[in-house]
C-alpha cells in the first residue's frame, strides 16, 4: 500500500468504509487517521492501516500461530485459534491491532462464519486488525478504504507485478515509490513495513 499524505484531507471516509465492510464498532479503527502538525503549524493527516510488515513482530510473539502470513505477504489473524493473550498488541509498534473486549455487533447475515480472509463478525475475546480486504483483492477488487477515498490518496499495489492503483489511475509501483521519495514509518525498527508514505513539504512523521 502507498499512502499519499499530500492528498489526504482527514475526512475519515476510509475508516468508515472499513467499519461498514467488516461490521466493526466505531472504536475499531483498523485504518486510523491521525491528525498531525507540520513544522509551520499546518495540520495534516496520516492514515494508519496495518503495515503488513515483512518482519512482523506480532507474528513472532503469537503463542499459537493464530497470526500468519499469506503467500502474498498479507498478515491475517485466525480468530478461531486466537487465545486473546494480547501479546501481539504489546509487540505491534504501530498500534494497529484491536481487541474484541465485548461482543461484536450482530452481523447482517446470521449464517456468516468468520474466516481469516473475511473475519466478519469478529469473535469476542480475540484480536482483529486490517486484513487488506483480501476478500476483495482476491477477486481483483479494491480494498474498502481505497474504494472510499475521494482524494485518491490511497494506493493498493503488488510489489511482484510492480503495479499500483488508487481506483482511478494505475501506475508502476516502483516508480510511484521512487519518484515521490516514499518512505516507511518507523523503518528503523527493522519491521520492514509494506506500507509506504509519500510526504509533502514539512510533513515529517518522526515527531
Amino acid at each position: 500500500m502507498v499512502i499519499d499524505l499530500r492528498r489526504c484531507d482527514g475526512c475519515k471516509k476510509c475508516t468508515e468504509a472499513c467499519q461498514t465492510e467488516h461490521d466493526l464498532p466505531k472504536t475499531f479503527e483498523w485504518i486510523k487517521v491521525f491528525q498531525l502538525q507540520d513544522k509551520s503549524g499546518e495540520t495534516y493527516y496520516m492514515p494508519r492501516p496495518c503495515m503488513h510488515c515483512e518482519n512482523a513482530p506480532c507474528l513472532r510473539v503469537c503463542p499459537v500461530a493464530a497470526t500468519f502470513r499469506t503467500d502474498e505477504g498479507v498478515i491475517l489473524v485466525d480468530q478461531e485459534r486466537c487465545i486473546g493473550c494480547r501479546m501481539c498488541m504489546a509487540a505491534c509498534p504501530y498500534g494497529a491491532r484491536y481487541f474484541n473486549f465485548g461482543d461484536p455487533p450482530a452481523a447482517p447475515n446470521p449464517f456468516q462464519k468468520p474466516t481469516p480472509e473475511f473475519p466478519v463478525p469478529q469473535i469476542k475475546g480475540t484480536v482483529g486488525k486490517c486484513m487488506l480486504c483480501v476478500h476483495n483483492t482476491d477477486h481483483g477488487e479494491l480494498p474498502a478504504c481505497v474504494k472510499a477515498c475521494g482524494m485518491q490518496a490511497l494506493w493498493i499495489g503488488d510489489l511482484t507485478a510492480d503495479v499500483a492503483t488508487n481506483g482511478s489511475d494505475t501506475v508502476r509501483l516502483s516508480s510511484l515509490i521512487k519518484d515521490n521519495d516514499a518512505f516507511r514509518y518507523k523503518e528503523e525498527l527493522g519491521t520492514s513495513p509494506r506500507v509506504y508514505y509519500i510526504a509533502g513539504h514539512g510533513q515529517d512523521l518522526d515527531n
Partner: peptide
C-alpha cells in the same frame, strides 16, 4: 488475563 480462557490449552496444541 486471556480473552479466551477456554482456549488456554491451545498453547500446548499449537505452541510456537
Amino acid at each position: 488475563d486471556l480473552g479466551r480462557p477456554d482456549r488456554f490449552l491451545y498453547i500446548l496444541r499449537y505452541g510456537q
